[in-house]
Design a binder for these strands. Structure first.
Lengths: 229, 229
DNA sequence: CCATGTCCTAATGTTGACATTGACTAGCGG
DNA sequence: CCGCTAGTCAATGTCAACATTAGGACATGG
């Protein structure tokens, strides 16, 4: 089990500049500073981050593995552009992972963790009520799923999720740019349903719903994307 | 569809030294040159590969993402050691992926591709008959699954597989070291069954069998590992 | 006017030197 | 004799200079 709800003390890991650089660039992409399709020049980044090109280079390699950027030999790195087939691919993988994660989480965790998730959903509802920025909602949405993968207790499963998480985040970002009213309307209910199923431990139904939850989101997204362009 | 069986002309991609280095080290691990737990020193590798430390470093980062090696801040890189819980984790993820991959492959491909897979299984049988090295069998086994993921047409699914493939390979390697008679006996039959199901396009059964196929392999492996130590 | 070949430039790919870190060992004090 | 501390060293983390490449501008020939 996790050490404690308060003071989630975790190894004060010393990280290299490469990871730091990766985080900064990732953040910049999510806040919209770098547009999809935009070039990321190593020298520019190195200058603005105040580190050497080597560190930036290593960081970009990390982001490339996350699918957030794409690099070509001697042609540089640019922010991945989201297309409908991309969404289908990523969400097919995500649906498979979420299915397993939900089941594993349900089997391992107890009331305490579900309450925790409930509070997170409450926060989402509250943020909607006070009309907060949609990017804030997105972060909460992603965090919700983060927690489920963590609760699964499967490190590799979490890694697989982290490998596509950034792309999912990017997709959601694109989605809300196209029109986010629909999203606001259903986000809370859908997540509440998931928590309820996790709590009840109806594993078969849970597997099905978790998978379908992702699939339907993927469909909506793919449609919006197809219409939008 | 693929361009042609002969002359599979594909973009002549020029790769950097880093990828080259990663391949060489990976190969060295699979052939047993570097034992699990063994340290991989950047300077040594750089010297023996004839490239600079930077390239080696980048290559090791790739292998780290594959879970084949583990790096710690300022403490170096070493070959991952296989433990029973690791197997469970990886195989839980693999089972989920294989399920999706098998279904997608069945939906997209036709007789031509199944014949291709059949030939691969024939090769496996032939290699067993002439008493070939077990590592050779392993390579064929892994390639079989590689092809299914390729046939799925889902790039992200393939990537997710590639992210754990090396670990699976490492596990199999450990398995045959512990005793490979059993493996020789069932490998061919199991894969023949899969091809048959793919061909028939019985999607529901296929999903179940593909998943179970992986799960059972994982169980066997976990048991052997638990006994072995 | 178009196709082809050449040169130039701006970016990435690669490298070896330098800075920093963590483990080990010897010396000291209790 | 044991525990602690400081010094040493070998390894990794970081950096800036150099080499290589892709793509476009330009000129040339058909």
């Amino acid at each position: 089990m996790e050490p404690s709800p308060l003071a989630p003390i975790r190894r004060a890991e010393r990280r290299g500049l490469a990871d730091e650089a990766a985080d900064r660039v990732r953040e910049a992409i999510f806040t919209g500073l770098f547009q999809p399709g935009g070039a990321l020049r190593e020298v520019e980044l190195a200058a603005s981050l105040g580190v050497s090109r080597g560190a930036v280079r290593e960081g970009l390699a990390v982001l490339a593995r996350e699918g957030l950027v794409q690099s070509e030999w001697h042609r540089g790195t640019r922010v991945t552009e989201v297309t409908a087939p991309d969404v289908e691919e990523v969400y097919a993988v995500r649906a498979a992972l979420e299915r397993v994660a939900a089941r594993a989480a349900a089997e391992r965790s107890g009331a305490f963790e579900w309450d925790d998730l409930d509070r997170l959903v409450d926060t989402m509802a509250a943020e909607i009520a006070r009309g907060a920025d949609v990017t804030r909602l997105l972060a909460l949405d992603v965090e919700f799923h983060d927690r489920i993968y963590r609760l699964s207790g499967n490190r590799r499963l979490l890694d697989a999720w982290l490998a596509i998480r950034s792309q999912v985040h990017l997709f959601l970002l694109t989605r809300v740019r196209l029109g986010h009213e629909q999203y606001r309307g259903i986000v809370v209910d859908e997540h509440r349903e998931l928590v309820a199923l996790l709590r009840v431990k109806d594993l078969t139904t849970l597997e099905r719903v978790a998978e379908e939850h992702v699939r339907s989101a993927g469909r909506v997204l793919a449609e919006q994307l197809a219409d939008g362009r």
